[in-house]
Design a protein around this nucleic acid. Structure first.
Lengths: 392, 392
DNA sequence: GGGATTCTTTTCCGACGTCAATAAAAGAAG
DNA sequence: CTTCTTTTATTGACGTCGGAAAAGAATCCC
């Protein structure tokens, strides 16, 4: 399967180079002096760090439009040449694999689906290989090589080892996915938890850029949460972290599949909403979209279900804010399709349950295209390429 | 007030020196090679970092008892000379100031109380000055100078600035406490939130030594929580963090002073327990200890109050574990006096509400002598002395 | 064409940490 | 008793990285 030869690596593996590059990556075209201010290096150090990056083609000088300052020598802006390198991100779900081809700036170029007949690791692996093959065919040529493959899987994933320790959804245990995928594709592979991958994408390329403490809350089939504290994504000592979906918001609430009562997910998860709408309206629902349709039509029982879901999510976010005091919480996920139905309740519940100035936390939403999860996987690959270690 | 002259500083302000010293401080006598393994430096670097520290007297060679390995050259253990320097820690509560004199290893030598007639910053400041004066009098002489003063205050404290931004308990706003105390005492002053200070003490000298991710939960008048993530104490973007006391565990629960319902603190805080025991038994209680006494006597209503309190605390801890996945949770605080009355409930509620392997988190208790809060303050002073910046 | 101002680069230098070699301190083996 | 093995500690050469200061560059304003 395609020799893929070289294994091109990032020049200058010094922390300073990574910092400088990351700053330029996250904050668009920047003057060297501005970079120096941001990362706390001397201007001279920035000049020296930038040079090899320009020589290698990762950075280029000159921006499209330079907003001239009134005084002094105009800045010589530096930006990342997105087209210099490509990455592939893959998200494995229960019934399909989604893959994207992105550039170095994590902009999606091509997105592809592949249905998944079963969840056997071999099946998934060959599916990934096929998807990667398809995406590689979309490449421009050797000028923009594909430098990494990121794979996002739900569950307990050890990114350092590149193994899936336990994924209830896929029914996997201790699958050395990175190693296997590297063998079949010949690419450097990064494997991470799906929510953390999405969080990395937000941290580097999204609404978390420049923040050291924020949270990403995903609303969909499950309710997940990625946390960035002290500038680093929280992984958890035992493979569990960010389980906002299983924060209890009502000990008398509905039973959750985790065995507990009144988890956020048992109230606001997709399955829970469908079940509750059915109970409230008596309508038989065969598809999640139908619950949403009922609420949109104004059926009171359905609307109330969404309202309660919003309240649960708002409380969950308040819990995160009370414990960690993030600067921002970014709500995302497929569930945002129903955002208008519970936006108010999320906000109200958050403000009520947030303690003191935790309520100042900036809670915002971010629409999530279907390929966003795969893009998160690509972001982890880009991160691995630039900074070999997991740390900042 | 006592010139205090010199302002002795830590030699070698390089990160490596701090890391080496901290490792020796937290993990008793260590061989240089062992230090090198722990902090990831080369043996040569450790040798070079240790030398100036020995010359300055902070480290000494040779331990009391060296467990000889069977083979090879025996290690030349290095440990901190606790007596080389002293620190003062002060905790300001509503009605008194507690001060301790500790050595460099944060071992308490002397502890003193001082009643506080009112909460005016001037009164508190002169109280601190008096307490510091008393503790300075216990000093051995110039061989063991007092090198720092740590002050712990509840509320929103900016450690970097050394200001109390807002303390509801003291009714303070924007008091530049570090600056003021430095002027009156002539010592380098560190000001921090009380729970965070306690957490620093655990991180460096207690059950959190060597861990990068853990939590300290304090049970007492309030329910607080200090979090260490990625090896650093979480401060929160808006001055709020670790507010486990205001995590909602029962939306139908009793009203909390924060305006919300069913907070952990509204169920398990001291005032809440007293109120609930009164409601359950009808006995008029004039002192918190009486509630405990009733429960100890086996009065069913009182016991149930404690049981519910334990359940609330256990749920709160589970929430922390679900979100952050700490390696360990350390329960401490005056409320532990009643630990036998709710230990089981804490454990049960934790195990039930913890999601998946989050239940593997090591939850343990740690008795907390009354001067422990002040010791935490001293720990922050020691930390500031060794590492000028707040980071690791 | 001078300042004035701001951004960038150059040059020098010191600090720090690794590498590789060496020394040191034991017990084990013969 | 000598030599080998094993482990720990130290030394000094070397390279790298980042900072300080000064010079250079590019623009606007006067």
């Amino acid at each position: 399967m395609r020799p893929t030869s070289s294994a091109e690596t990032f020049p200058a593996n010094t922390p300073a180079a990574s910092q400088v590059f990351t700053a330029v990556l996250s904050h668009g075209p920047l003057a060297r002096l501005e970079v120096s201010r941001r990362v706390g290096l001397s201007p001279a150090a920035v000049t020296k760090a930038v040079r090899p990056l320009i020589e290698a083609g990762y950075l280029v000088e000159g921006a499209d439009e330079e907003a001239r300052p009134a005084l002094g020598r105009p800045a010589n802006l530096v930006r990342v040449d997105g087209g210099r390198a490509l990455f592939i991100g893959v998200k494995v779900t229960g019934d399909e694999i989604i893959g994207v081809l992105t550039d170095l700036c994590c902009r999606v170029r091509v997105a592809r689906h592949l249905p998944l007949p079963d969840r056997d690791p071999r099946t998934v692996l060959s599916g990934i290989a096929e998807l990667v093959e398809q995406l590689l065919a979309e490449t421009d040529g050797p000028a923009a090589p594909v430098l990494g493959l990121g794979i996002a899987v739900s569950g307990d994933v050890d990114r350092g080892e590149g193994t899936v320790r336990y994924s209830p959804f896929l029914e996997w245990r201790d699958v050395p996915l990175a190693e296997l995928a590297a063998m079949t594709t010949g690419l450097p592979v990064t494997v991470d938890n799906d929510v953390r991958a999405l969080t990395v994408a937000e941290q580097w390329f999204g609404a978390g850029a420049g923040l050291t403490d924020f949270a990403v809350v995903t609303v969909g089939a499950g309710i997940g949460c990625g946390l960035v504290v002290h500038g680093r994504v929280v992984a958890g000592a035992h493979g569990v972290a960010g389980e906002i979906g299983h924060v209890t918001v009502d000990p008398a609430g509905p039973l959750c599949h985790c065995g507990n009562r009144g988890c956020v997910e048992a109230i606001a998860g997709e399955a829970a909403i469908v079940r509750q709408v059915h109970e409230a309206t008596g309508v038989r629902l065969t598809h999640p979209g139908e619950a949403l349709a009922l609420a949109r039509e104004g059926v009171a029982g359905a609307r109330e279900v969404y309202a309660r879901a919003g309240e649960a999510i708002g409380r969950g976010i308040a819990t995160v804010a009370n414990l960690l005091g993030p600067e921002r919480v970014i709500i995302s996920g497929e569930g945002l399709a129903a955002y208008d139905l519970f936006a108010e309740q999320i906000r109200d519940a958050f403000v009520t349950a947030a303690f003191g100035s935790a309520a100042q936390c900036d809670v915002r939403t971010r629409p999530l295209p279907f390929e966003e999860w795969a893009r998160g996987a690509a972001a982890t690959a880009i991160q691995s390429f630039i900074t070999p270690d997991t740390s900042r």
